[in-house]
Simulated assay, not measured.
Amino acid sequence: MKIVAVIGAGTMGNGIAHTFAQNGFTVKLIDISEAALEKGMTTIFTNLDRMLAKGTISAEDKMKTISNIICYTDIEDGVVGADLVIEAATENLDLKLRIFRKLNEYCSHNTIFATNTSSISITQIAAVVAHPERVIGMHFMNPVPIMPLVEVIRGYNTSDEVTEFIMNLAKKLDKSAVEVHDYPGFVANRILMPMINEAIETLYNKVAGVSEIDNVMKLGMAHPMGPLQLADFIGLDVCLSIMNVMYDGFKNPKYAPCPLLVNMVNAKKLGVKSGEGFYDYSKNKKAEKVAKQFL
């Protein structure tokens, strides 16, 4: 495998592109938005500069990584010749199905299709392509160049050969691959998201404030980041989407998203990406008032 196409230049997409390019792969980074591509490449440059300053890479490594990435705004042009296509678009089922239908049309039957979805059924996505045995989940963790885990999700029809190949590929990226099966939320988010949702419920029920809840989990449970701050970094819209997927999939009220989470997403208070969530990132200060106005 030499050529990898990554669809989506957002936080996860540019991180995946960076990781593959740094490990010697030719990467075709695809996004319909020229602005998104420019922003994604700026992020990659910034992250490489940070690694260079820390001495973890050389100036030559940086230039080789950048030279390994080619940007495209047309999906057909971008995926031509790719051995592996990784979809890292927004966590929206209809969008992902549209992308995979296009991949089925544009790519050869030998191309492996992976999705970076954090919760959506691999089996459902694979159903829209010929040879669904080649479709698999590669759930990278954010920030991709740093976090060592890849959650490898095999759908109902994913072949043993494709699963083994992706597990070995993750090792070539210096990642630890963990194989899991295709159920809502997989493992990472099936455990993480209910915890975040419960933290939001705790705030909603006025048990404690934002910083108090986060400090209990950081100081008492040794979490590197409190659940409310983590939700802001993930994106409250993403958290809500994952909770809805699990609620729809399991039909269990324990997965129902907290009304506060729903209200904040409706008000476009999405966390870091919007400048406000449980904390105020526009002024780099704690802002419980941001959440309180929705209580």
Rank of each mutant, 00 (worst) to 15 (best):
I191E: 01
L240P: 04
G226Y: 02
Y183W: 06
C239V: 15
D237H: 15
P224W: 12
L173M: 11
T202M: 12
N215A: 11
L230Y: 06
K206G: 04
P227M: 11
P253N: 06
C239A: 15
L236H: 10
M217Q: 07
L230P: 14
V210R: 01
V238K: 08
S241C: 15
P194V: 03
D214K: 03
N244R: 14
V187K: 00
I213L: 03
I234W: 10
Q229Y: 11
I213Q: 05
P184K: 06
A256I: 01
P259I: 01
E212C: 05
I196Q: 04
P227I: 09
M221F: 15
N252M: 01
I234F: 11
M193K: 02
L169Y: 08
D232S: 13
T163F: 14
A199M: 11
M225G: 11
N244P: 14
K218H: 04
Q229T: 13
I213C: 02
K171E: 08
M217D: 00
M167R: 04
I200D: 09
G249M: 05
P184Y: 06
I242W: 06
N168F: 08
D214I: 03
G220V: 00
M243V: 12
I200C: 04
K251E: 13
E212I: 00
K175Y: 04
D174W: 09
M217F: 01
L169F: 01
T163D: 14
D214A: 06
L260M: 13
L261K: 03
E212D: 10
K171Y: 05
G235H: 10
E179G: 05
Y247K: 14
F186C: 02
E179I: 08
L261W: 02
E164D: 13
A170R: 11
P257S: 05
L261R: 04
T202P: 07
Y255T: 07
Q229F: 13
V178L: 08
I166F: 01
C239R: 11
N252T: 12
A177E: 05
M246V: 07
L192P: 06
K254V: 10
N205I: 01
E198H: 10
T202N: 07
E212W: 04
Y183P: 00
D237Y: 13
Y255W: 06
P253E: 05
V180K: 08
L260Y: 00
V216K: 02
P259R: 13
F186S: 03
S211C: 09
M246W: 11
P194Y: 03
G185K: 01
